[in-house]
Design a protein around this nucleic acid. Structure first.
Lengths: 138, 138
DNA sequence: CTATTCTATCGTAATCATTTCGATTTGTAA
DNA sequence: TTACAAATCGAAATGATTACGATAGAATAG
């Protein structure tokens, strides 16, 4: 997902271009990992002093609705990362040191088709956490 | 995990017995699934009118520290369930209708040992959501 | 049984993340 | 460039959770 793709999706859905929105997308495109609303606010305040919390949270919600961002919750805080848009369903490894997210080839769901034959599986949550090779060796 | 086991663990760690604590544990032992602080409060108010929020949240935190309860987050709310204490690492299927949690035999981690040979896996999150046979057929 | 000593609880206020609101500004299509 | 819907601001509201000073209660030793 690139910034201009995100802007295009915004426009296609009747939303407007603003510099702030481009900068928010740019922040997540370059972050390559999960970031909090607070971290985004800190980043945005360097370019736009006095930016409203409304702007931060409204856009995070909008971007998540449009599937430009994905989120998870931790310690009562919502964390966001840029969406993958690879088209195919997949999971991630997340580096706890640098925040890098690595897409995984396989999905663990087939492991359970037998054990849960009588159950109706709707969704699943799966993520791995640890250290990427770079962080592990330094 | 039974109520008296939980009370024993409390005492072993220098905490005192109270009827409220026994009732909180009993609530989760019989719930067999995730419940919110608000749901626990509603239950406790039937026996103890005027119970303090402090009591609810302090004990939830304490029980989680002592690993009598486990938690996950959803929509900015923390949900708690009784701990399994089976000794062995395992995951759960969670019924979205009745809240039932079913322990799963297998762990999906082995699926990724090859793909993540250069990575250092620390922890992982995995849970399945859907309908249990009972809720599915009604 | 009673005194002593912590721990638990209450009632309430504070905190933190997030959402909402009325007024104003800005993007964009005609 | 004009008109209008959408975006933003500044600030207040909400909802879940945590914290605090004062009181009540459980455990232990004498």
């Amino acid at each position: 997902m690139q910034v201009d793709e995100g802007i295009a999706i915004l426009k296609k859905n009747g939303h407007k271009y603003t510099d702030k929105r481009a900068d928010i997308l740019s922040y997540f495109v370059h972050a390559k990992g999960y970031r909090s609303a607070k971290a985004l606010l800190a980043f945005m305040e360097t370019s736009y002093q006095g930016i409203s919390l409304d702007t931060i949270y409204r856009n995070l919600r909008l971007f998540e609705q449009l599937e430009l961002l994905e989120s998870r919750e931790k310690n009562g805080e919502k964390l966001f990362k840029i969406a993958c848009k690879s088209g195919t369903h997949h999971h991630h490894f997340v580096c706890e040191s640098c925040g890098l997210t690595k897409p995984l080839d396989k999905c663990p769901l087939p492991v359970y088709t037998e054990e849960l034959a009588d159950y109706h599986i709707h969704t699943h949550a799966f993520e791995l956490y640890g250290l990427c090779p770079t962080c592990h060796h330094s």
